[in-house]
Design a protein around this nucleic acid. Structure first.
Length: 581
RNA sequence: GCGCCUGUAGCUCAGCUGGAUAGAGCAACUGCCUUCUAAGCAGUGGGUCAGGAGUUCGAAUCUCUUCAGGCGCGCCA
């Protein structure tokens, strides 16, 4: 409909005197016709006259009056008015206005989808938490966000792949392995436990399951392992890892792979409970290591050396990232020959690009923002446009319970996990609140509120609207074989109480397209909240089932589309609509 | 010091590529359940959009600047 209006407006612009000397394309580019915020401004409003007035060297209000006359002359609209500083407000004919609910009912779960993405492939990498312990509530936000934008982009016609990058190769995994080792041989080590090890209870569980699995035949004399370890807590655990690897290399490998498997399984099961699934789990260790000259990591570094972006200095291999705007150049290979995390990441991103995605999205914790420049630099260094990659930052969420902040730290083992959160308030409420604020801003998450039964609890406010409609539909179905397929009374203008609802519903596709192009799921949440309010208001003012048969049919048809809106919106956020509460 | 983010009602936050009297919930006060779910609805009060300058027909929105708060600046991951 808006397109038709714009066509008429464009015709009008060309018909103006002196039009041939004016850059009409520029005006067309700048003006917009949008759905009005409220019905007292009609259905559609356009600001074209204010934009065009300065080009045509005329007064916006006069131009608006001319446009009003031109649009009225087409006979396509119920009424056209100029308003304010030069807006032109258009009221559609009833049939055009009501066609929205026909369309929603017809398209049903497909309503709001589009083909804007044109089948381009996007890969979204998110969560990617180190597999050193259970997911905590900080990861939950990235999980909810990444999954939501994946759903939204899919509905906008993109081919989306969701990937989890498993950091299973670095020092953190050695620390995990050491931690489990120390728990397994607690007795043999005379209760020694490295200061910097993971202290969570899950480590003990993993140790126990390892013992049960292997019958723990090896009970070596372990005291030399802990003899004269460095005082420094960082060095202590590193040295311990070196010694275990050297003396018990098979045992080390067994414990490591067992610990990794257990932790990953717990992460996977938490994500499953959280209604988040991944298409691909990509292991850092599959990039290989530097000893293999054909490994992905070696090849990507060679590639950068060939391009003279990587160079040797002070015994280390550096990447020139300054050229791409980074503060300083970064080390790829340390002077002791070990690759840095950054080197793996460069190889990983090269691999992602090689896999042929049109676009990559990384969802990162906001504390990594200093890292963006250097990864972009490496992508350019590899010969690709840095625009291929879009990094979305997710700020940490602070959790409040009974008014005080919930603490979390994987290392100390003292944390409130994602699984705890799901247990506490449920997957859907948790996802909802994670998404209720723009991802790159601090979120204060009030657990008491998420469970509260008041209007303040936006989650239930929206769900309640859906449940109320379901309840009405059920009552209607008791006396009618099926939902009415038309809204004659509304189309005739005999029953206009639904108009506000219809008007709000017509905004839905625009909201989704904005959420999609800006990667901001919270826009959907705020729309749904406003829409739920329109519905509750309608519900209070109208005793639907006491209306005339003709009106009831129309209302039910309209409310069914309202239900579709609520349901589609929630589904895009990965939240199940509630039918009864 | 450099970089990023934030500052809107007492509180928690919306505010689309600049648009019409700046919105919502909570809190305060007032009404609405013999009728489809009151986890609801209607209303009242509450604002120098941190301050200043600029661009524009038009600025909470864009630019510059000052102030205040948060975060990041490893041969860690």
């Amino acid at each position: 409909m808006i397109k038709n209006i714009n066509d008429e407006i464009d015709k009008f612009l060309l018909s103006l005197p002196n039009a041939e000397n004016i850059d009409i394309a520029k005006i067309k580019d700048k003006y917009s016709s949008v759905i009005t915020d409220s019905l007292d401004k009609g259905h559609i409003t356009t600001n074209v006259c204010m934009i065009a007035a300065s080009e045509f060297k005329t007064n916006p209000k006069e131009l608006a009056q001319q446009l009003v006359d031109a649009l009225e002359a087409t006979g396509k609209f119920l009424s056209v008015e100029s308003a304010g500083p030069g807006f032109v407000n258009i009221t559609l004919q009833r049939s055009d206005f009501v066609s929205t609910i026909d369309k929603i009912n017809k398209k049903n779960t497909e309503f709001g989808t589009s083909t804007i993405g044109n089948n381009q492939s996007i890969q979204i990498e998110f969560v990617s938490a180190n597999p050193t312990g259970p997911l905590h509530v900080g990861h939950g936000r990235g999980a909810a966000y990444g999954d939501a934008i994946a759903r939204i982009l899919t509905s906008s016609g993109y081919k989306v792949q969701k990937e989890y990058y498993i950091n299973d190769a670095g020092r953190q995994i050695d620390i995990l392995t050491c931690s489990v080792f120390a728990r397994i041989y607690e007795k043999e080590l005379s209760q020694f436990f490295p200061k910097n090890a993971y202290k969570g209870k899950y480590i003990i569980d993993i140790a126990n399951s390892f013992k049960a699995k292997t019958n723990s035949k090896i009970t070596p004399e372990l005291r030399p392992l802990i003899h004269d370890l460095p005082e420094d807590e960082e060095k202590e655990i590193d040295e311990l890892a070196v010694r275990i690897k050297e003396l018990y290399s098979d045992l080390w490998k067994d414990i490591k792979s067992h610990a990794l498997k257990e932790v990953l399984e717990s992460i996977q099961s938490d994500l499953e409970k959280f209604n988040v699934s991944f298409d691909n789990w990509y292991s850092e260790s599959s990039l290989g290591d530097l000893t293999d000259s054909k490994s992905k990591i070696s090849l990507s570094i060679e590639h950068l050396k060939d391009k003279e972006l990587a160079y040797i200095k002070d015994g280390a291999v550096w990447l020139n990232t300054e050229g791409a705007g980074d503060d300083k150049n970064r080390v790829l290979i340390r002077d002791d020959g070990r690759a840095t995390y950054f080197a793996s990441d460069v190889a990983y991103h090269k691999d992602k690009i090689d896999r042929g995605f049109d676009k990559l999205i990384n969802v990162w914790g906001a504390d990594h923002h200093g890292y963006i420049k250097r990864i972009e630099a490496s992508i350019e260094g590899l010969g690709f446009s840095k625009n291929k990659l879009s990094v979305q930052l997710v700020q940490f969420a602070n959790l409040f319970k009974d008014g005080s902040k919930v603490k979390m730290s994987t290392r100390s083992g003292d944390f409130y996990s994602l699984a705890d959160l799901i247990e506490d308030i449920g997957t859907d409420a948790a996802r909802f609140y994670y998404l209720s604020k723009q991802a790159d801003q601090h979120l204060d998450f009030d657990l008491n509120l998420a469970k509260a039964d008041s209007k303040e609890n936006m989650f239930y406010y929206i769900q309640y609207a859906h449940a109320r409609i379901c309840s009405l539909l059920n009552k209607y179905m008791e006396k009618n074989p099926s939902i009415s397929k038309s809204a004659l009374a509304i189309a005739d203008g005999k029953y206009t109480n639904c108009d506000k609802l219809i008007h709000e519903m017509s905004k839905y596709p625009g909201v989704i397209s904005r959420a999609s192009s800006s990667l901001q799921p919270h826009l959907i949440i705020f729309y749904l909240k406003d829409f739920a309010h329109s519905f509750h208001s309608f519900y209070n003012d109208n005793q639907v089932l006491t209306e005339s048969k003709e009106n009831i049919d129309s209302i039910i048809f309209c409310l069914n589309s309202a239900k579709i809106i609520l349901s589609n919106g929630l589904t895009l956020l990965g939240i199940k609509p509630i039918e009864k509460m």
